[in-house]
């Protein structure tokens, strides 16, 4: 209540927005009080016309702008992951090479002291493992590229 004889603005708004379950007292007061009736009408004008306002949109295409940003982000992320993968691989190879240096003379000694068959077997196994890993890496990379770039990053129809 605004004062003892009139309805408060809060009560009027709540009544208009049907937020009050039992509004019999408000209805009763409104029927008897022209001043509150007038104030209610003023709020009616506000609420009715606010709802009529057309929401403004942007002059640019939000979807195109956002999808472009997301695509660029995804490409960058993919490139970063690729760099990280090759970086780790190179570091791993260099690390293994560095730590295997002291053992190289012993390995060479094994090849040159043994028969030609053992040498061929060792080279063959090494080459086989290398080719298997290389093929797997290439295949995985192709699947990943296909998934990300060929199917998903085409413009929306």
């Amino acid at each position: 209540m605004k004062n003892s004889s009139h309805l408060s603005d809060e009560a009027l708004q709540s009544y208009l927005l049907k937020e009050i379950q039992d509004d019999s007292l408000i209805v009763e007061h409104l029927e008897a009080c022209s001043k509150c009736q007038k104030r209610l009408e003023e709020y009616q004008v506000v609420i009715k016309n606010v709802q009529k306002i057309e929401p403004e949109g942007f002059t640019f295409d939000v979807s195109a702008l956002v999808m472009n940003t997301v695509t660029v982000y995804e490409k960058r992320k993919s490139r970063r992951q690729e760099f990280a993968f090759w970086g780790v691989l190179i570091l791993l190879v260099l690390g293994i090479s560095f730590f295997s240096l002291p053992f190289l003379p012993a390995v060479f000694k094994l090849f040159f002291s043994g028969s030609g068959l053992i040498t061929l077997l060792a080279i063959g196994v090494g080459l086989g493992v290398f080719l298997f890993l290389l093929t797997d890496i290439i295949r995985q990379n192709q699947v990943k590229e296909g998934k990300i770039f060929k199917n998903n990053l085409q413009p929306m129809s």
């Binding site: 939000v62 979807s63 956002v66 999808m67 998934k147 199917n151 998903n152 990053l153 929306m156």
Partner: peptide
């Protein structure tokens, strides 16, 4: 990985 579907989220929440 269907990045294109993110456009549906954008369309649905754009307003």
């Amino acid at each position: 990985g269907k990045i294109q579907d993110f456009a549906l989220i954008v369309k649905g929440t754009e307003k």
